[in-house]
Design a protein around this nucleic acid. Structure first.
Lengths: 114, 114
DNA sequence: ACACAGTACCTGGCGACGCAAGGTAGAGCT
DNA sequence: AGCTCTACCTTGCGTCGCCAGGTACTGTGT
């Protein structure tokens, strides 16, 4: 567990799903696209084995909805978009995240333990 | 999983251990004390069943060391302190955290997906 | 002396989730 | 027909937070 490469993995937990929600907030996207875009974020890079199950979970939770769209070249894609519930979940996360971020900054940031 | 109360749980993952490291950076503390202090942090409250195994892991990882100290009233306490490795792990987390925090702020914060 | 509460430590089993590896299938090209 | 690229999904594993339960030492009241 003390492995350094595992550090980012732990941080992703509980945040990644909301980053995905945010990615489809204004524009529908499909799985492989999300994987590629996240791959460009140094701290959030996640493989297919992480994203596809995550998308399925979010769909089952009712936060995402999907529709199949034929690709101009290649197999059909499943496009995801936010549901009402997903939108409010994202909003809720935003406020929760601000609070959480501040707490961690205070405890860990400077070393001034509370 | 869509449960709201689970939100903070996911966020704690990968962060809690470094908050604990930070708590014993300048002063040795014992398990129950850490549980109580974390309980006062709204976003990081964690029970004994979380903290004691966490402390054991950090000890096995070589990031914490411990010594038994008799209590002025009550059973003996196991006090934890940072090792050299723990100190550098904490430093590493601090820089990693800043980077991670910025990425999440950018992706989720305003909704302006990258 | 005895029971009882308070403090302090630890563990077993469960569920959630990230992830590597492996699997299926359509589209296009030669 | 064979090959490659794209796209989707599943299986099995390890990690970790957490609930519930368990042990033990100390001090207090009767």
């Amino acid at each position: 567990m003390g492995d350094v490469s595992q550090l980012a993995t732990g941080l992703r937990r509980g945040t990644l799903e909301f980053c995905v929600l945010a990615m489809v907030e204004f524009e529908d996207r499909y799985g492989n696209e999300i994987v590629r875009r996240l791959g460009e974020e140094p701290n959030l890079a996640a493989g297919e084995g992480t994203i596809y199950p995550l998308l399925s979970r979010l769909r089952r939770s009712g936060w995402l909805e999907s529709k199949w769209v034929e690709s101009p070249s290649g197999p059909p894609r499943r496009y995801y978009g936010l549901t009402m519930a997903g939108r409010s979940a994202l909003e809720h996360f935003r406020s929760e995240w601000v609070s959480f971020r501040q707490t961690v900054d205070r405890l860990v940031g400077t070393g001034e333990a509370a």
